[in-house]
Amino acid sequence: MTDPHRILLAAAVLGGMAVWLLLPRRKGGGIALGGALGAVSLGLTAAALPGLADWLAQSLFWLLGGMTVVSAAWAVTLRNPVYCAIWFGMSLLGVSGLFFFQGAQFLAVATVVVYAGAILVMFLFILMLASASGRARYDRVSLEGLLSAACAAFLVGVLSIAVTGSLHSPKLDSSSAGIPQAQRQQGVLAAEHTKQIGRQLFGRYLVAVEVAGTLLLAALVGAAVIVGHARGPLVGPRATDPETAGGPRHG
C-alpha cells in the first residue's frame, strides 16, 4: 500500500468516525468533535488526491468538492428535516458547480432546474405538511449509526483506494489513456454543447428518452392513483392540535 493509499485509509476511518459523531444520538453532544474530525478527514483526502494542472483549477475543484461534501454531510446528519432539505439543496448547487467544472453545462443547469427546483420543492412541501420540525423523537435518534458509518467508511475507503491505485497502474486501458485533448475538444468539450446534447439524445439514445418519458407518465399516473383515494383531510399534529389549528391569528 503506497502513501496515498494509507492517507486515504486514514481519511476514510476518520471520516467514518466523524459521521458517526455527527449523527443524531441518544447521548447527544459530540457534534463539535465530529465536525473537527470531518474537516481533518477532508483535508487528508485532498492531500492524497493527485494535483490538477494549475492552482486555480485545483482550488476551484477543492472548493466545489468540499462544499458539496460538507453540505451532503449536514443534509444527512441534522435533526430538523427542513434543514436537511435545505442543505441538500446546497449540495445540489455544489454538484452543479462540479458539472460546470467538467464541461457538462446542460447537465448542470438541468440538475438545478429539475432537482433543486422541482424535487427539492416537493420534499419541502411534504415536510411542511407532515413534519414536527425536529422536535419529534424519531428525528433525534438514529438507528445503528455505528454500523452504517463503518460500512460507509469501508466502502469509501475501498473505492478510493482502488480508484487511486488502479488509475496509476500500468494496466490502464491504453485506448483511452492516450486520448488527446484535441479530440475531447471536438467531442465532449465542444463549444456547441447543447447542440451536441440534443444530437446525442435524439440520435443515439432515442429509445432511452422514449422509455424515460413512458416512465414519467407511469409515475404520474401512479402517484395520482395512490394519493387520489385519500380519506378526508390530511391528519397531522398541527391539524389536531386545537391551539395551533386553523391559520394565523386574526387580530
Binding site: L8, V69, A72, V76, T77, P81, S131, Y138, L159, S160
Partner: peptide
Amino acid sequence: LVVGAILFGLGMVGFLSRRN
C-alpha cells in the same frame, strides 16, 4: 470519482440510520 464515492457513502449512512 473520490468525491462521488464520498457522496455515495454519505447518502448510504443517511439512508441506513435516519428514522424520518
